[in-house]
Amino acid sequence: MKYMKEFTKGILKENPVLVMLLGTCPTLATTTLLSSSLGMGLATTFVLLCSNIVISLIKNFIPKEVRLPSYILVIAGFVTFVSFILQSYLPSLYESLGIFLSLIVVNCIILGRAEMFASKNNVIASALDGIGMGIGFTLALGLIGSIREILGCGTILGISIGNWFEPIIFFITPAGGFLVFGVLIAVVNTILKAKTNKKPKEEFGCANCPSKDVCAGKGECK
């Protein structure tokens, strides 16, 4: 039960896209359609889960000096695997994701979780963290993708929502992506603020710092 928190934190409280603002590049680039957003989200979730498990397993064998290249190598292995699978079984999705599929290798969410979490925690916690973060990423992308597809194309998953609706093409342009992204960040901020306001006010210290995993509570930021 104590691992439940590792799983749920990625969905809203530490949502990688809407709260931590990581992985913005694939978020804006692949969310013009809901199908490609979900494809991107699920592919990333898979890589995140596998790389978190493997890195957590081998964390004691990696010398500290070369840890980042080692993480990238593990991640790149899984990305290659995913892109081969997609290329052979879902060629249309493979086409629509294009270069962003291979760029999962350098997705900062995955490397960030490897560095901040998997390299310091055991396998079960890392796996749950990976799934939770992956689902948070997929949900955020799916939300942005469905808003942009409905408003920008007048369809949802390729099915027309009716001829009465005239698509607002602005929403499938990059500028529209930024607008939807910004509005969603504002909404999530409001929700999280309302949540924290209900609790008695906590002192902002090392324990509540979003970067506490990086400095491991050394208090270096003071």
Binding site: E166, P167, I168, I169, F170, F171, T173, A175
Partner: peptide, 8 residues
């Protein structure tokens, strides 16, 4: 510009 991009 919003309208121009959206409803050319």
């Amino acid at each position: 510009i919003f309208l121009f991009v959206s409803f050319a």
